[in-house]
C-alpha cells in the first residue's frame, strides 16, 4: 500500500485562483477529512487528485511517482465518488456498472457477482434494469459509489458522497468508510457535514478560499483552538461573518415587499 501525496497544488480557472498551494498526504489506513465552505476548492482538489484535472502548478504523487507518468496504473488503484453524479441516462444501473466493470477489465463472473451484491445491498435490485433517467439523486449516488468500488481500489476519494442519500445509507456509509480504512485503504473524505467528518476521519484539512488553513488530527485541532467540537474549530477557522446576523439579513431580504 502506498501514500497519495499532493505537493503545492495550485489551480487557476480563467485567471481566478481556485486552489492555492495545497499540500496533503493520505496514507493507507487513514481517512482524511477535507472541509471547507462552498467554493473553497474541495471538488477542484479532488479532481486534481483523481487526475481528472491538470493542476496549474504542483504535482500529485502516488507511491512516489507523479500520477500523470502512468495515469492508467494510478487509476487502477483509484476509486472516485464525485459530488455531482452525472451518468449516462439511457443506460440502466446494471448496464452502467457492467460498462465500468468491463472497461476496468474485471472478469465477467466476478463482475456479475459484485454488481448483484452492490445492487442488493443498496436496495437497487428492483430498479436495476430501469434507465438511470428515472433514478432519484440518491439512487444515482449509490450507482456512482458502486462503480467506484467495483475494482476494490487502494485509494478512495469521496467528494460529498452523502448528497441525496437517505439516513440509513448515510449511516452505513460512515461505517463502510471506517471499514475500508481498517482494510488499509487510503481515503479522502470531503464533506460539508461536520458531524460525519468528526466521526469518520482521523485527520482533517480545512480549506478556505483555496488556502489550507488547518491540517491536523481532530483532537489536536480542538485542543489548539480550545473548542469542544469540530464545528467550533471550523467556525473559528472559516466563518468570518456572524451566522445569526446573516440569517437575520436573509429573512429581511425575503420579507421585502412592494411599496
Amino acid at each position: 500500500m502506498a501514500d497519495l501525496r499532493a505537493h503545492h497544488l495550485t489551480k487557476h480557472f480563467n485567471g481566478v485562483l481556485v486552489v492555492k498551494d495545497v499540500s496533503l498526504t493520505i496514507r493507507p489506513g487513514e481517512v482524511v477529512g477535507y472541509l471547507g465552505p462552498n467554493g473553497s476548492g474541495k471538488t477542484t482538489t479532488a479532481r486534481m487528485l483523481a487526475g481528472l484535472l491538470d493542476p496549474s502548478s504542483g504535482v500529485v504523487e502516488y507511491n512516489g511517482r507523479n500520477i500523470h507518468d502512468d495515469l492508467i496504473a494510478f487509476r487502477r488503484q483509484l476509486g472516485y465518488i464525485p459530488e455531482e453524479p452525472s451518468l449516462y441516462p439511457f443506460l440502466s444501473g446494471r448496464e452502467y456498472l457492467q460498462l465500468i466493470g468491463r472497461l476496468r477489465q474485471l472478469p465477467e463472473t466476478l463482475l456479475d457477482k459484485k454488481i448483484d451484491g452492490f445492487l442488493d445491498l443498496f436496495g437497487l435490485h428492483l430498479a436495476a434494469d430501469q434507465s438511470i433517467a428515472s433514478y432519484s439523486k440518491g439512487m444515482r449516488q449509490k450507482i456512482v459509489i458502486s462503480s467506484a468500488l467495483l475494482h476494490d481500489p487502494a485509494v478512495v476519494l469521496f467528494d460529498e458522497p452523502e448528497t441525496g442519500l437517505d439516513v440509513t445509507t448515510t449511516m452505513m456509509l460512515r461505517h463502510f468508510v471506517r471499514l475500508l480504512a481498517s482494510r488499509g485503504k487510503a481515503i479522502l473524505y470531503s464533506s460539508h457535514i461536520l458531524e460525519v467528518v468528526e466521526r469518520v476521519c482521523d485527520r482533517v484539512i480545512v480549506l478556505h478560499k483555496g488556502d489550507v488553513v488547518a491540517d491536523d488530527s481532530i483532537e489536536r485541532l480542538r485542543a489548539l483552538m480550545s473548542r469542544t467540537s469540530l464545528e467550533g474549530v471550523f467556525a473559528e477557522l472559516v466563518i468570518r461573518d456572524d451566522p445569526e446576523q446573516m440569517a437575520r439579513d436573509l429573512a429581511d431580504v425575503s420579507a421585502l415587499s412592494f411599496p
Partner: peptide
C-alpha cells in the same frame, strides 16, 4: 452520448481502444 458522464469512462479507461 453524454459529455457530463464522461468522467466515468475516463477513470475506467485502460487505453484498450482497439478492443473497444
Amino acid at each position: 452520448a453524454e459529455l457530463r458522464a464522461n468522467w466515468g469512462f475516463q477513470l475506467a479507461w485502460r487505453e484498450r481502444d482497439r478492443a473497444f
